[in-house]
Structures are given as C-alpha cells and as structure tokens.
C-alpha cells in the first residue's frame, strides 16, 4: 500500500471513529445513569438526519438553521422516548426495560418507514462540505477534517458540563448512587431527562455528520451505527465518557484498516465489531477505561 492511500484510509478511519464516538457517548451516559442499553439510540440518530432532510427540502431552511433545528428537535425526541418507554418501568426488572427498549427501537424504525417512506433519500449536503483538499497527490474530503474537529469540540463542551456545572455534578451523583442522590435533594427524573436530551443532541450531531459523509438516507440506517457505537462504548468501558470516545476511535480506525490491509475480509466488516465485542467481554468485561466493580450480594 502506498503512503497516499494509507493517509486516505487514516483520514477515513478518523472520521468514522469520530462518528462512532459521538453516538457512543449517548449510550455510555444513559448506561451510566440507568444501567440500560438504550436500543432506540441508533434510531434517534436516524431521526436527526431526516429532520435535516425535511428542513432543507420541505421548509427550505438554510442548512445551518436546519442543523440547529435538528439538534434541538432530536434532543426533545430523546427526552420523549425516555418519558414514554423507560420512565414507567423505573422499578421493573431489567429484562422488562430492555424489551421496552427493543420495542421502542422497532416502533421508531417502522414509524419512520411509514412516515418517511422506505425509498432512500439523499442527504442535502451543503456545498461548503463537499470540497476536497489536495496535498500533493493525496486528496482528502473536507468532511474528514471537519468531523473529528466537531467531535472533539463537542467532547470538550460535554466534559465541561459534566465536570464543572451543577447539573453535571448531579448527573455524576445519580450515576454513582440513585437513591442517595434522591435523598440529597436531586430531582432524579429531571437529571435523567437532561441526560437523554444531551445524549440525543450528540447523536443528532453525529447524525448530521454521518449524513454529510454517507448521504444515503434510509429509515433503518441507525441500526448498524447504533450497535457499533454501543460496542465502542463497551470497549471503552461503559459509563465512561472518555472511554466511549477512545472506543469509538479504536473501532472506526480498526474497521477501516482491516478492510484496507485485508480486502478479502470486506464482507465480514459487520461481524468484526461483534467479534471484538465478545473478545472484550471475555477478557476485560469492564472495558479499557472502566473500573472493576465487584457485585454485592
């Protein structure tokens, strides 16, 4: 492999990794607080791309307005999903909550098929992102630079919120001990809503960037990135925001590199993430960044 193609793969891997990372943060935040795999997260991510599509094509918004609207609406949508599908089951066995999550995910997907139609749509990419940067013989799409920058900026803002603000402190408290946090006067339900809102907004940012990079929109587009981002979160150590980002980069990069170096395995691309997941669960279940928690009887 020549150096040029290697750099191209590198930039692609970086971009894909950033996208996984953005979605993985949502999984990890929700899991940290509710101990719940939010199966619908991938579908929330899908909704954001369609909001941009309809914003631009139907309501003729300028692209940046559509982006902001999509991020806000997706945040609200995430809060709504939590209200409807998860809050009523707060005290139920975990299996029930998980079935509810699967049900919510299927409901959103099928509603999307009914409302948006099953035919693929093209994401309206602003011309600004369609440029290609040339370095000597290497040409790299502009989006590949833009995506990691947006991801890292979002991460910094998120870490600021979680570590420096009062809400962030409440979030950390709830994830440590739900009951004790409530006793300290924290409104747990509000904090959970805020967590879902932030996670969904990050998913929306991921969705918009995903649309710019892979502009083919179908109602089921959220499933695979959603599952893989969850795997990224597990790899990084679920519940840990930085771990999710590292896991995302690791997964995206290795996915691209394996195909680059071993093209014969291209067909197995989707299986690779799951194999990695099972390997991680077997050898280091708490993930790369997670701490070991011993279970109390």
């Amino acid at each position: 492999m020549s150096l040029e193609t290697f750099f191209q793969h590198l930039s692609n891997g970086l971009a894909l990794g950033s996208l996984y990372a953005l979605i993985a943060i949502g999984y990890t935040m929700v899991y940290g607080i509710l101990r719940l795999i939010n199966f619908a997260h991938g579908d929330i991510f899908m909704i954001s791309t369609y909001i941009v599509f309809y914003g631009v094509t139907m309501f003729l918004m300028p692209w940046w307005v559509a982006f902001v609207v999509a991020i806000l609406l997706t945040g609200i949508f995430g809060i709504l999903v939590e209200r409807v599908a998860y809050r009523p089951l707060r005290d139920s066995p975990r299996i029930s909550v998980m079935i509810s999550a699967i049900g919510a995910s299927f409901l959103i997907e099928n509603l999307a098929i009914v409302i948006f139609g099953g035919r693929p749509k093209a994401f309206p990419i602003p011309d600004y992102f369609n440029q290609v940067a040339h370095f000597n013989t290497i040409s790299i799409p502009f989006a590949n630079f833009f995506i990691p920058i947006v991801t890292l900026t979002s991460l910094v803002i998120l870490l600021f919120i979680v570590n420096k603000t009062k809400t962030g402190m409440a979030m950390r408290a709830v994830s440590k001990d739900y009951e004790a946090a409530r006793l300290m006067g924290i409104n747990v339900d509000n904090i959970i809503s805020i967590t879902f809102g932030i996670g969904s907004m990050l998913a929306a940012i991921g969705g918009i960037l995903w649309g710019i990079k892979y502009p083919n929109l179908i109602p089921l587009l959220g499933i695979m990135p959603g599952l893989k981002a969850f795997i990224a979160a597990v790899i990084g150590g679920i519940g840990d925001i930085k771990g999710a980002v590292i896991g995302g980069f690791l997964l995206g990069m290795s996915e691209i590199m394996i195909i680059a170096f071993l093209p014969s395995l291209t067909g197995y691309r989707d299986a690779f993430a799951f194999i990695l997941l099972i390997a991680i669960l077997l050898f280091k279940p708490s993930g790369l960044m997670g701490q070991n928690v011993t279970e109390k009887v």
Binding site: I37, R94, M98, Y268, A271, F274, L277, I278, L281, L282
Partner: peptide, 23 residues
C-alpha cells in the same frame, strides 16, 4: 464462553452472535 455474562451484556453478546452467523 459468554454464559458468565449477565443481563444486558449477555443480550448484546447473543445479538452479536446472531449477526456474526448471518454475516
């Protein structure tokens, strides 16, 4: 190998197996 996982981890690992078999 995966039966020592619990609840949602087991669910996601078995889901992964289903996908791997299909792939």
């Amino acid at each position: 190998p995966i039966l020592r996982l619990k609840d949602d981890y087991l669910a996601i690992a078995t889901l992964g197996f289903g996908e791997i078999i299909r792939v």
